[in-house]
């Protein structure tokens, strides 16, 4: 995109992108630390994640302020307008991702039972997927790459499918051994958080597409998360 005649307008838009890049960086770190905290039950790391969350929240407020000020000052049109609206929406998705990472990390405090390794493999895999998606979508945004955004958008199916299988697996463990219920419930919520993070990355993907083309992605996203309609018996 060529430059504006008024150079400070470019600076305003660049500042928004920079703040979002910072938010994205922190969100990635938070997610990775949260997964670590659960896997290793590292409560110190969890506390760090909890403490860092304020940074993302503060950045979201800054993005909003900058966006509103830019709208008031420049009366943006066309792609500039979309750029600003999309920045606000992505900031809100990143803020939610930060919250979900924090909530996941917190759970490491509540897990006191020894954790069987096989239980962790699914969760760890899901964590890796969520991290990859988040990284890819942030790259796609930084480069305004709508193709890459679409690829991320499609790959959310995988996370949903994985969440389904973790859900069933955890139900089985809980039935086998009621002492595992506490642990499994926390893991289930953790996995649900990762699944939600996947949803937020697809929101971001939709916004990147809108930024490029000014329209919504023309087809509906395939949904694989069946857990909300899966009964106890059917899970077995």
């Amino acid at each position: 995109m060529s430059d504006h005649i008024v150079k400070s307008y470019d600076d305003d838009l660049a500042a928004l992108k920079t703040m979002l890049a910072q938010m994205g960086g922190i969100a990635e770190e938070q997610l990775s630390d949260a997964i670590q905290a659960i896997s290793k039950r590292d409560t110190k790391l969890a506390d760090m994640v909890i403490a860092q969350d304020g940074k993302i929240d503060a950045l979201e407020v800054q993005v909003e302020e900058k966006a509103i000020l830019t709208i008031a000052r420049r009366q943006p049109m066309a792609r500039d307008l979309r750029e600003i609206m999309v920045a606000i929406r992505i900031a809100s998705d990143l803020e939610r991702i930060g919250d979900l990472a924090k909530n996941t990390a917190k759970r490491s405090h509540a897990i006191s039972e020894p954790m069987p390794r096989r239980l962790m493999t699914g969760f760890a895999r899901m964590g890796r997927l969520a991290q990859e998606q988040l990284k890819d979508i942030l790259d796609a945004y930084a480069r305004s790459d709508s193709e890459k955004a679409l690829a991320v958008w499609r790959s959310d199916e995988e996370i949903d499918a994985l969440y389904n299988s973790i859900f069933r697996e955890l139900l089985t463990y809980m039935m086998e051994d009621p002492r595992m219920i506490g642990l499994c419930t926390h893991l289930l919520f953790g996995a649900k958080n990762l699944e939600r993070i996947g949803d937020h990355t697809t929101n971001i993907a939709e916004n990147i597409y809108y930024l490029s083309f000014g329209t919504a992605i023309p087809v509906e996203r395939p949904k694989k998360d069946q857990t909300s309609i899966t009964s106890y018996d059917a899970a077995l």
Binding site: S2, D3, H4, I5, V6, M77, A78, R79
Partner: peptide, 10 residues
């Protein structure tokens, strides 16, 4: 059109 309405015309 995009360039004009966003203030980018040289």
């Amino acid at each position: 059109t995009q360039d004009y309405i966003t203030g980018r015309f040289g």
